[in-house]
Deep mutational scan, measured.
Amino acid sequence: MAAAAAAGAGPEMVRGQVFDVGPRYTNLSYIGEGAYGMVCSAYDNVNKVRVAIKKISPFEHQTYCQRTLREIKILLRFRHENIIGINDIIRAPTIEQMKDVYIVQDLMETDLYKLLKTQHLSNDHICYFLYQILRGLKYIHSANVLHRDLKPSNLLLNTTCDLKICDFGLARVADPDHDHTGFLTEYVATRWYRAPEIMLNSKGYTKSIDIWSVGCILAEMLSNRPIFPGKHYLDQLNHILGILGSPSQEDLNCIINLKARNYLLSLPHKNKVPWNRLFPNADSKALDLLDKMLTFNPHKRIEVEQALAHPYLEQYYDPSDEPIAEAPFKFDMELDDLPKEKLKELIFEETARFQPGYRS
């Protein structure tokens, strides 16, 4: 834990890192770190609560700039109880001085990944967590956004079992017609939660990839272990087919990539493993919904509104309290091709509203 900075004593240090967030945020305490930044909790002297502050230093890398800009653009436009918001952003007053960006968010005690390492969940908890994931996802999908990296560590939890989806750095506007060349190379989302079509096709992607990830998360809540822990690309596919069985001819016809289709045709026939054999203690309604989410063919996979209306979630289902976005989200430009200098300018502009004396 960093010592509390005395008023006016300059930035606090946390594990050798400068955290320049005073005077409003003090009493910093280390939480963890990701690929390009550290997260601390801090005391907000204005709202009198502890908050989470993520320090991001992305400006050396085009990919990190892209992810940072995506996350900020999306989260500043989203407003939903099951999606983490941005409360404040701290950065230098000029673009030349801006080396880091500090993002202030609600402090959540833990995440689903940490929880599943230590606790076996009751059916009631599984049901409530799944409902909140789908409630947040309904809003995301209504904005025409794909999260693309749903996994237990991106689901934040607090002691009252509130759940918030975080990390929109890989999110995209849904565009089933656009052929994202190089899709697989830039697709760094965790393999275990990846839909089979991501490994088999490169053309376009749809909201059904997020539903697949939610199915993987439900299976993990039922058993405290990942359902498809593939060691590499082909191993991942083999794990999936080992449980779902061989795809039907109709399902194979959806695979545009001939090499991928021929690979699947070359494999020995596998039978589907019954879900109640894998999860003998699970609620039968939970397994019915799991089956509809972990469907090989993305066109037959359940959609988020149908999933919310499934009998497993009937005690929570309330369409009048499951809000959607006001308007579909649009990125003005494809960020993939922009140089990091341009992305830095866009991050600077996007964060201006939090600067003292800002006038829109």
Rank of each mutant, 00 (worst) to 15 (best):
Tyr139Ala: 10
Ser246His: 00
Phe331Lys: 01
Arg359Ser: 15
Ala5Asp: 07
Glu60Ser: 03
Cys166Pro: 10
Leu112Trp: 01
Asn224Pro: 01
Phe19Asp: 10
Lys114Met: 13
Val104Pro: 04
Thr160Gln: 07
Ile209Thr: 04
Val173Thr: 07
Val214Ala: 10
Gly8Glu: 13
Pro319Gly: 10
Thr26Ile: 15
Phe183Asp: 08
Thr295Met: 07
Ser57Asp: 01
Asp149Thr: 01
Ile86Glu: 04
Glu349His: 02
Phe296Glu: 03
Leu264Arg: 01
Leu146Arg: 07
Glu341His: 04
Glu250Ala: 02
Ser223Tyr: 15
Ala7Phe: 11
Pro280Gly: 11
Ile74Arg: 09
Leu107Pro: 00
Asp20Val: 14
Gln119His: 13
Arg24Trp: 00
Leu112Cys: 02
Glu12Thr: 02
His180Leu: 15
Pro339Met: 14
Pro280Val: 10
His232Asn: 11
Asn47Val: 11
Asn87Arg: 02
Gln236Trp: 05
Asn271Ala: 01
Leu294His: 04
Lys292Thr: 08
Glu12Met: 05
Phe331Gln: 02
Gln66Arg: 11
Ala3Gln: 04
Lys54Arg: 07
Glu305Asp: 15
Ala219His: 07
Tyr263Cys: 11
Gly215Leu: 11
Lys164Ile: 15
Phe228His: 01
Tyr36Ser: 11
Arg15Asp: 07
Val173Gln: 12
Tyr233Gly: 05
Pro280Cys: 13
Pro176Gln: 15
His310Met: 05
Leu146Trp: 03
Lys164Ala: 09
Met98Asp: 09
Leu184Ile: 11
Ala143Ile: 06
Gln306Val: 03
Asn281Cys: 07
Asp210Asn: 11
Glu220Tyr: 05
Leu294Pro: 06
Ser248Glu: 06
Ala309Val: 02
Gln249Phe: 04
Asn27Met: 08
Ser153Met: 09
Tyr139Met: 12
Phe129Met: 07
His80Pro: 04
Arg79His: 09
His141Lys: 11
Ile255Met: 08
Gly245Met: 04
Tyr113Asp: 07
Ser266Trp: 01
Ser266Tyr: 03
Thr68Phe: 01
Phe129Leu: 15
Thr110Cys: 13
Ala4His: 02
Asn262His: 07
Ile74Tyr: 05
Arg191Cys: 07
Glu303Gln: 00
Lys259Asn: 14
Pro280Ile: 10
Ser142His: 02
Phe78Arg: 09
Ala286Ser: 14
Ser142Glu: 08
Asn271Pro: 02
Leu267Pro: 03
Phe168Asp: 01
Asp288Arg: 06
Lys55Pro: 06
Thr94Ala: 05
Tyr358Asp: 12
His269Gly: 08
Val46Gly: 05
Asp336Met: 05
Pro274Asp: 09
Phe183Asn: 10
Pro339Ala: 09
Gln66Phe: 02
Val273Thr: 00
Met333Phe: 05
Asp288Asn: 14
Gly85Leu: 04
Gln97Asp: 11
Phe331Thr: 00
Glu305Thr: 00
Val145Trp: 05
Tyr139Pro: 08
Thr160Cys: 13
Asn276Asp: 13
Asp175Val: 15
